[in-house]
Simulated assay, not measured.
Amino acid sequence: MIEWNDDQVALRDGLSRWNDALSSGHVEGDAAGTFHWDKWKLIRETGILGLPFGARWDGLDQDLLTTMYVLEGLGEGCRDGGLNFSVTTSLASVGVPLQKFGRPELRDRFLPRICSGESIGAHAITEADGGSDALKMRTRAERDGDHFVLHGAKTFVSNGPIADLIMVYARSHPEGGALGVTAFLLERDTPGLSVGGPIHKMGLRTSPLSEIFLDGCRVPAANVVGRVGGGFLVLDHVMKREILFSFIVNAGEMAHRLRRCVEYARTRIQFGKPIGANQQIANKIVDMKIRLETARKWLYDTAVELERGQDVTAGIAIAKLLTSQANLDSGLDAVQIFGGNGYMAEYGLEKDLRNAVAGTIYSGTNEIQYNRIASTLGL
């Protein structure tokens, strides 16, 4: 078990002063399905967007585990799941690959804007025809002197409608397979780039999602992140941290939900006794606790292995599978524990359940994670 030091605890506890404001109107915000810029201003004030980035770019220079620990606190304290998702998306989509693979001039120009929240990041990977099969990517990038010209379209771009910076993955070598994809950093006003309107969705409604369209979009070759043809190396680095960031937030959300259910089971009286005295209810809550602790352990243990440079292919997939399913199951259990109240929008539990469904799909569907684990077993 990790023992957090006083500085790490203080960093996480420092978020608590913003919890009420960040959570304010979360049910109404979900119903409206709109991104709240006033809450993003609060997020900027917290400093959380600079957690994993170097001090030279005005970041907090925290290691992976500390970053996750504070993000878990965000999940526990902020009831706006869509806002939480937009935070981790901005961190992972642009900031993480820039710091690792970006040219010095790119890092110096854009990382301070990601750290401060002045710019919001998004990444554009998925295409309508390809889905989880990124090797079927059709978006192409053709070299033209000191530029690349991009043609194609991407879908399911989280933060798309609000993003200032978009990491776009495009095929620069038609016959190159996994070695034929390149990562490009695009600013929103890049000629030839257009962003579709927000797409309505089941959950995470305050985190906007859209398509983007690339029609002869000219991108300076200096905006290549990593090397030409090395896009999948960039993507692999990003996806590991995206999973750890977003799903440790889910662990925080599960911890908050567990506390709500314990309190409700102690105080809700039915047939002359608290509902928690019924073994069926108590067992559901115990299962919620077990799932939470199992998910947390896998996430943090995998992060430790990643920091040590170990192969975490299976660990990341297992952590993603366990946490997404645990979040979904605990969300359903919470609705059932609260009964009719849980089904009502005002309690926020049905919203949490809808949000949890997304976790089984984004960052590689759970079915894909099974395939990855199977491959590590030689199957």
Rank of each mutant, 00 (worst) to 15 (best):
E175F: 02
D144G: 08
F232C: 11
G229S: 09
A255C: 12
D6P: 05
V262A: 06
R268H: 15
G102Q: 08
A255H: 03
V94T: 01
S16I: 08
G180M: 01
I212P: 00
A345C: 05
V238Y: 09
L299V: 00
I361A: 13
R260A: 01
A326D: 00
E45G: 03
I285N: 05
A277G: 07
D189W: 08
I199A: 02
N19S: 15
L91P: 10
A92Y: 15
A317Q: 11
Q62T: 10
G102T: 12
T155I: 06
R107M: 04
V195N: 06
D287H: 06
G59C: 12
I114W: 02
E293P: 05
G59A: 10
D38G: 03
M68C: 03
S210P: 11
P191E: 09
T376Y: 11
R44P: 07
S158T: 14
Q310A: 11
T376S: 07
K297S: 05
G197K: 09
Y343H: 13
V225I: 08
E127F: 03
G130A: 11
L65G: 10
A295R: 07
K320I: 07
L106T: 07
E263W: 04
D144S: 12
S158R: 09
R296M: 09
A31F: 11
E350G: 12
A178M: 09
K351I: 15
W18T: 13
Q270I: 15
A10T: 10
W18M: 02
K320H: 06
N250R: 15
G25Q: 08
R296E: 07
E28N: 08
F148T: 05
R354H: 11
G131H: 01
F35E: 02
T88H: 05
L214F: 12
R291D: 00
V27A: 14
W18K: 09
F338V: 00
G131Y: 15
G54Y: 05
Y347E: 12
N355R: 02
G160M: 05
Y347G: 04
A251G: 14
